[in-house]
Computed example of a mutant assay.
Amino acid sequence: MKKFIMSYSCGKDSTLALYRMIKKGNTPAALLVTVNKEENRSWFHGIPENLIKEVSKSLNIPLILVETKGNDYESKFTEALIKAKDRLGIDSCVFGDIDLEPHREWCTARCNEAGVEANFPLWQENREELVYEFIDSGFKTVIKNVKLECMGEDFLGKVLTREVVKDIKETGSDACGENGEYHTFVYDGPIFKYPIKFQHLNIIKNETHGFLDVKDSENE
């Protein structure tokens, strides 16, 4: 059995990887979430810090926030793994990557530097089947970001269901969004002690992406 740290994005793939590890009897020592130091939001998915902390509480897994401006992303990530190994006794880091080889190489390199094993529970499985496993397991996730050349902004804020996956496929996008077509925020499911309450704010767009801005519903 592994004592692991979870490289966690708050999205569906890392959540499914975490769920599988727990079901097999492995022990999650912490969630590792990288945060944009200038925005106080998670990198890539843009989840506010207070919501990340609430997710940690609901999952009942300690949180390690790794603040980085981006230019020191690699070193900060490796440093966090080394600290987790020394202080928590972890032997591995788990990732939700499916089949993008450059991602796997990057993750494995950081783990090698820290002297821990890189674990990929979803690796090279069928993307669409993984999405359905996630949904059918009872997880709830909202579409947080979309690549506008692939998917319209009308997808933002939708809860991911089998019907929504069908709609995503009809745009020509990958069902799992593994090519970056969309990112999600998981707010409830079988390993959550309670659902995360949050509010939809406005939609923010730049030249390439649309983002659903969200915040903790407890804080005005």
Rank of each mutant, 00 (worst) to 15 (best):
V164F: 11
G115N: 01
K37S: 15
L201R: 07
G138S: 04
T78H: 06
K147I: 09
K12H: 01
G89A: 05
W106G: 01
E218N: 14
N145K: 12
V146K: 01
N60A: 05
V165N: 06
L130N: 02
K24E: 15
N119L: 11
L65I: 09
E153C: 14
K69V: 13
S75E: 15
W123A: 02
A17F: 12
N26E: 03
K85R: 14
S58H: 03
I82L: 13
L201S: 03
L63G: 08
M1V: 11
E113C: 10
E125L: 14
A118T: 00
F211L: 14
T141L: 03
Y187T: 06
E74N: 09
E113R: 12
W43P: 08
I90N: 00
V131W: 01
S75N: 10
S14L: 09
I22R: 00
P28I: 04
E133Y: 03
S92Q: 04
H200I: 01
V94F: 00
I61W: 11
T78N: 10
R20L: 12
K85Q: 03
I143R: 00
R127L: 05
G11K: 03
G96Y: 01
V116L: 11
S7A: 11
A17Q: 03
F185V: 01
F77Y: 15
M21F: 07
S9L: 05
C150Y: 13
K169D: 07
S56C: 13
G180V: 14
R110I: 04
G25Q: 06
V159M: 07
L18C: 04
N126P: 07
V186G: 07
E79P: 06
K205I: 06
R41D: 08
V131K: 00
E153W: 08
E128V: 13
P102G: 02
L156N: 07
T171G: 07
W106T: 02
T34W: 07
L100C: 04
E149C: 13
D91Q: 06
N60P: 09
S9M: 07
D72F: 11
R110Y: 06
K69Q: 08
D99W: 08
G115Y: 08
H103G: 05
N119D: 11
I203M: 09
L130A: 06
L32A: 15
S9P: 08
M151N: 10
K205A: 06
S58K: 03
D13Q: 02
